[in-house]
């Protein structure tokens, strides 16, 4: 970084994992990861339980938001993955709520974004990958391999296509996890860089401040869209496991 030009922007510092009470980090140490994940659970519960506590026939605003989230994910699972995927709805809903609230809470200034870490998103994505693959073999047996054998293509092409399909299948969890972590990391790093310009530019500070404001709005959009995309891709993979024929 430009450490010799008088100011220093360290855009990656915000992603550091720190122990809450100091000391070394072991696997059980409460860190800022723990804190913000707990807040994610609290926020999701606040919306879905505290917000919907009225159970009114004519919902309040919070209850309406909770019901819309429920209906949104429910319809997504049903439409994308099929009717028999509805039994996995709580699992997918948990994933969506976690990613959505982790992304949104990460946008609070000085917050820590748990979903910007490859380790976190990779665990999420590989959980989905392993679940879906295992499910595909359990439900369909060897017919699940038909996913890679494109029967509509000419016979000579099929081995080549099978190889490509196989590679793209195993690339799924990688792109699934890196997309989410990368999008989160990119937005936060760029915001940090712009914010650093604001302190360096002196009187013209308002230019980067305006840019950061616009960027923040974009980041809100990206946070929601990435949660949506993560969930809908999970549904798409689930559909492949349930109905490998198409």
């Amino acid at each position: 970084m430009a450490s010799d030009s008088g100011f220093e922007i360290r855009p990656m510092d915000q992603f550091e994992v720190k122990a809450l009470f100091g000391g070394d980090i072991y696997w059980y140490t409460p860190t800022n990861v723990t804190l913000w994940m707990a807040l994610t659970v609290l926020a999701a519960s606040a919306l879905m339980i505290y917000g919907a506590r009225g159970r009114a026939l004519v919902p309040s605003r919070a209850q309406s938001a909770a019901e819309m989230t429920y209906g949104f994910i429910y319809n997504m699972v049903r439409d994308v993955a099929g009717h028999d995927a509805v039994r996995f709805f709580p699992y997918i809903f948990t994933l969506f709520m976690f990613v959505l609230f982790a992304n949104l809470l990460g946008l609070i200034p000085f917050a820590f974004t748990t979903t910007s870490h490859i380790a976190v998103t990779a665990v999420l994505a590989f959980t989905v990958f392993l679940t879906v693959t295992g499910l595909g073999f359990i439900l369909n047996g060897t017919k699940f391999l038909g996913l890679f054998w494109v029967s509509s293509a000419p016979l000579a092409l099929r081995p080549v296509l099978a190889l490509i399909e196989l590679i793209s299948y195993f690339a799924r969890p990688i792109s699934h996890s890196i997309r989410l972590a990368g999008a989160m990391m990119a937005g936060h790093a760029v915001a940090k860089v712009f914010a650093g310009f604001a302190s360096a530019l002196g009187a013209a500070f308002f230019v980067p401040v305006l840019a950061v404001t616009a960027l923040y709005a974009l980041e809100l959009l990206v946070a929601v869209i990435q949660a949506y995309v993560f969930t809908i891709l999970t549904c798409v993979y689930l559909r492949d496991a349930l109905h490998p024929s198409h």
Binding site: V17, I25, W27, T29, V33, M37, F98, T114, A119, T127
Partner: peptide, 13 residues
């Protein structure tokens, strides 16, 4: 820090 993150992620999930 991976083990720490993964552990807390699984607890959270």
């Amino acid at each position: 820090t991976f083990s720490n993150q993964i552990f807390w992620l699984i607890v959270t999930l």
